[in-house]
Each structure stands twice: as structure tokens, then as C-alpha cells.
Amino acid sequence: MNRRDLLKNLLIIPPGIFLGGLFTKILSLLKKTPLGKISLESIYEKYNPHEHYYAMGIDIDKCIGCGRCVEACKIENNVPQEPFFFRTWVERYVITVDGETKVDSPEGGIHGFPETLTEKEILRTFFVPKLCNHCDNPPCVQVCPVGATYKSIDGAVLVDKDYCIGCRYCIQACPYGARYLHPETHTADKCTFCYHRIVKGLQPACVEVCPTGARIFGEVKPRNNPLARFVRFNKIGVLKPYLNTDPKVYYANLDKEVT
């Protein structure tokens, strides 16, 4: 792009796109394209979102850092393969005897952790899988200026990629680094708990492929499901509880070093 083109683009593009968008929208509405009546049945068919409220449990002591969840997530959700975009990733914590804490997540842990992080003597070490916490009090939803990110009836925090303006305020507001700007759609993107799977009775992809059962998916309310048992028999921690985001990803055996 040479400078002249650039200047031309600058003068024309922002207002042009704005007016163009407005105009096409007006045209499409004038044509009265029937959007179809939207109701719970037309969206979910037989599934009733009012009967569910989802959450996830993660047992840190079971995670082996194989990165299968990261790979499955990228495949299932068409997350760009480049190592800058993750809906879920795995972190490795190594605390050495001299009190130093080292953390890494090479390519989100998608290829495991073949390299050693430190040559020093290890005091304790563990893997921590991370993903969107689907907060009950989500700061990302609060800051979205147009209502393009929202909490669904069954408790998943989702993004409307056809409505998001790409201002990235939600990415700034997320304390967990769980959001990114999708390089193709130019809209915010994040974990959906594999919403398209769970409404059909399947497990989220990361839970499906976890070989050690470190990830447990289930519901907050009913007592007879794996998550209810998980929160009953473990001491539970959440990430950054002092921010009052009310995360719905529950960690068992969470270490104080995890941020």
C-alpha cells in the first residue's frame, strides 16, 4: 500500500464503511427478508436451556500436560492454528526449592511440554489447564457496548460474531486472558463450553479427549452428575476470586501461585 492509497483509504474508508453498512442494512430491511420467528424451539429444538446451568471442574493433580485438550479445542472450534489464539491452554508451574516460581505455556501446551523449564531443584510442580471461566458475574458482558457478548440462559458466556463491532473492550476486561480477536472474523472469540455440543448432550471437546479425567463437565444444580460429586469431595478454588467475577470453572488442589 503506498502512501497515496493510504491517505485515500483513510479519508474514504471509515465513514464510507459506516454509511455503506447503514445503507445495506436499510436495503436488506426494505426487502423484508423474513428472519423467521425466533423462539426457544427454533433455536434448540428439544433441548430446554432453563433446565441446565453449566460449569466445569478441573483436577490439577490429574493433569499430565499432554495438550490433547488444546488440540481438540482448536480442531472442534476452528481456532486459528497460530500460537497466539487459544480458547483453552495449559500452563506449567515449577516452584524451585529456592522459592522461585517459573511458569510457561509453550504454544499453549498443544505439543506437550518436552523442554525442561529449570535445571534447579524442584519443590513442587504441576500443570494448570485454563479456559474461559464462564463467570456468573462476567466483566466482559458488562463492558460490551452493543450486547454482542452475553450469558446464555444455561450459563455459558457467548459471543455474537455477526454483531460484535470488534472494539476489544471485552478482551481488556477479561482478567483471565481468555479472549482473543479472531484474525479472520475480526470479532472477539472465546471458549463456549462447546455450546453446540452440550445442547446435543455431548461433552465439550476438551473434556471428551482428556485422557486422565482431569476435566469434569457438568451442572451446578442437580446433585446426580459428575460435577456435583467433584465439588462435594474436593476443596475448590477459583481464579482471582477477589475480583468478584464468580468463575464457574472450579479447580481442585489449586496452588496459591496460580494466577
Binding site: F18, V143, V146, C164, I165, Y169, H186
Partner: peptide, 27 residues
């Protein structure tokens, strides 16, 4: 103008007037 130019979807900027989220500072 810099705000609109920075958006991932400048053509959707008018939504901020249509459906402002009153809980959002930016709206």
C-alpha cells in the same frame, strides 16, 4: 474517527446507538 478506524467492524459502529448496553462504560 480513530475509534471507528480501530474497530474490527467499523460498519457495525452504529449498533452502539441501536442497542446500547447501559451497563457498559463504552456504550
Amino acid at each position: 474517527l480513530p475509534l471507528v478506524a480501530h474497530l474490527g467492524h467499523p460498519e457495525r459502529a452504529f449498533e452502539i446507538f441501536l442497542t446500547p448496553n447501559f451497563r457498559s462504560a463504552m456504550a
